[in-house]
Amino acid sequence: MPVTTETRPTTGVSRTAVIIAQARATENAREDRLFADPYAQAFVDAVGWIQVAQAGRLNQGHFVLRTKFFDDYFLAAAASGCRQAVVVAAGLDTRAFRLEWPDGFRLFEIDLPGLIAFKEAVLGVQGAQPTCERTVVRADLRTAWPAELLASGFDPEQPTAWLIEGLLMYLEPADSDRLLTDLGALSAPGSRLAIEHINQEYVELPQLRAVHERLRKVGASWRSTVDDPFGWLGGHGWNATVTPQTELAARHGRPVPELTDPERVGSARMWLLEATRSAEAGSPAGAGRA
């Protein structure tokens, strides 16, 4: 399918996917890049560069560090023996193409049909070939997406590495809870989860006022926060740990992103979390079926 005005992601949360691709493209051009993403610039070229507010420019370092953080999360899961992953609301994620996966690894990408159409068109022009078994699932996460995932060959009896990146703040609290409930029901013992979320104090930062106005205009307002991610994830059967951006920045020799620096923003947080399935969470739906 060619890239057309109908398939270009210019509104809503899909628009933010292009902004993140811009950050990845900029990082890819650096000699000291933390990761390679040879397809990010193609997504940007197909849409045109989107001007972002000052806060968005200040957060580019966060987008880069979180990409590296979640890259390493997936590679660690694969190295531990996990052979199945799901990227929830995958957007313009290209990990299926740019990471080195072990033989037999399966990666599922879930997102809306329109954004998937754009992504597939751009990747097709680039001649991109996945480095694992890649399956695209066209589904709205506010509806019965588990059935679509299962119908695509997902195995709920196998440990899964899940990723929810740059999504939860755009969902209503009830939709976020429903997503975690559905996801947990599909998670076998040994499954992992990585997420990004924000607390209420982050939303209220004065530096983000222009960002909120721009997001509102394109229909992508932030609708939920979590002040206690450990309790929230624990209530859904996950044992979580958080990695501060200060730690990531030190690990990779980069400055701490200004809007995630406690010395500048106090207790405002953009959480980067990894979690494992609690032993008492029980077996996933469908486990033990013939």
Rank of each mutant, 00 (worst) to 15 (best):
G12V: 10
G12C: 13
I20Q: 13
T26D: 13
F35C: 10
A36S: 14
D45Y: 10
N59P: 02
H62W: 14
F69R: 13
F74L: 15
L75S: 13
L75M: 12
S80C: 03
G81F: 04
Q84V: 08
A85E: 02
V86K: 01
D93E: 09
A96P: 02
F108D: 02
I110M: 01
K119C: 00
A121I: 03
L123R: 06
Q126H: 02
T131Y: 05
C132Q: 08
V137L: 06
W145P: 04
W145C: 09
A147V: 09
S152G: 10
P159Q: 05
P159S: 07
P159K: 01
A161C: 07
I164C: 07
E165A: 01
G166V: 01
L167Q: 01
L168Q: 12
L179A: 00
L179G: 00
G184S: 11
Y202K: 04
V203L: 14
V203E: 07
R214F: 11
F230M: 12
L233P: 05
T241I: 14
P244V: 11
Q245M: 13
V256Q: 10
E258K: 10
L259M: 07
T260H: 00
G266M: 06
R269S: 02
M270Q: 09
R277G: 04
R277K: 15
A285L: 10
R289T: 13
R289L: 15
